[in-house]
Design a protein around this nucleic acid. Structure first.
Lengths: 209, 209
DNA sequence: CAGACTTTGTACCATTTTTCACAGAATAAG
DNA sequence: CTTATTCTGTGAAAAATGGTACAAAGTCTG
């Protein structure tokens, strides 16, 4: 394994490159230059080369990158060959939508458990996933080898839900609650806050010249 | 207006501060120090002061920030005093969920139009919003003074949908399609790509040591 | 009202990220 | 084979971001 640490920005962009490269392969385009890949992803050629360069030398001077080769390399780098198990906490409007969301499966993530505090919901199924009691979380997380927890509860309960997930053993949290979670260093937290995205747009509109 | 450009990161954090401050005001807490605000938002005191400092001097040495005053100031800075109109293109699974999403209203965004290419859907309502034909987009966007367009169509049609929105007059795009949109400089594009967030988590899991 | 304490605003420094720019490698053309 | 062209990989410069530290300003206490 390479020793230097790769920035989150780079990782995020690698997925963008992979998406584009996959489309190119499908179109039977065999090679692409950093300049054109940059064009297609709205990034600069230098950034493309720097990002890719961190993992070795894929390019060929004078002709560019071989799409097929690059696709395989990126998939390996990005760990697209493994599947991870996911648990969703909260089965309200948002939680239910997430349970139905096909994107998890598409990205090798398998939603294998759902939890809710409402005892009336326990034992029922949503999109084929059984709803369990929060109390059974430690047992189920361990049994089903779940490593990603999705927090889809109201803000007030978000910190608590996240702590329970971490205590039960997950190492990544995907947080949909619009609140800042305090988590130990070792836990990876990813906030998905649609409100804030929307608000940023408001700011742009209010301040555009 | 201040002349220097404010970074997107700062803007995003201002909304976090505002959220926290709003909660504090509700709890009748009158002042707060940058240190404590930082604690509550998982940011450092210096960053809080630096962010706020870019818009003037709100703090009082020795006692901190007046929550009521700061709330008003932030709301003004962030344009929360105005309401913006939104149109959603695409009324499939995701589009429908967005039309039902209460977060828009909560953030002074009003979804006043929806468009779909499927003629069978036109004329129907989802969550109280009428679905119109893409052809009528220019007229409706203008009439209803819509400034934000939400792209909730499949990747293949995303670029086209975005271009139509921009041609009709919107200046911000919220893009849910997992593809990179090419847009004129002046248009603000915000990508919301749950897949990529998920994938980044996968990468973290695959490479955590 | 003096001295101890708190807390801001900012200048300075460190680190990370982005951009620039160019030597050298591969290709293409005559 | 030689020359022109394309395009990578990467140092070095520049910009952005984040963190430290402290003077100055305000508050609190007796």
């Amino acid at each position: 394994m390479s020793t230097k640490k790769i920035s989150e920005g780079t990782i995020s962009r690698l997925f963008i490159y992979l998406r584009e490269i996959t489309a190119l392969v499908r179109m039977n385009i065999r090679t692409i230059s950093s300049a054109e890949l940059g064009e297609r992803t709205n990034l600069t050629d230098a950034k493309v080369r720097k990002d890719l360069g961190q993992f070795g030398q894929f390019g060929v001077s004078g002709s560019g990158y071989d799409t097929g080769e690059l696709k395989v390399a990126l998939e390996r780098i990005l760990g697209k060959d493994k599947t991870w198990n996911v648990a969703v906490v909260g089965t309200g409007q948002l939680g239910s939508a997430l349970l139905a969301y096909p994107g998890f499966k598409q990205h090798k993530l398998s939603v294998v458990a759902a939890f809710d505090a409402d005892t009336k919901k326990i034992g029922k199924k949503i999109s084929g996933v059984m709803i369990d009691s929060i109390e059974d979380m430690p047992k189920i997380i361990k049994e089903k080898k779940i490593s990603i927890g999705v927090v889809a509860v109201p803000s007030e309960s978000a910190q608590d839900a996240a702590e329970k997930l971490v205590a039960a053993g997950v190492s990544c949290i995907l947080n949909f609650a619009p609140t800042s979670l305090s988590m130990p260093e070792k836990v990876k937290v990813k906030d998905v806050d649609l409100s804030r995205e929307l608000e940023t747009l408001s700011y742009f509109l209010a301040n555009k010249r």
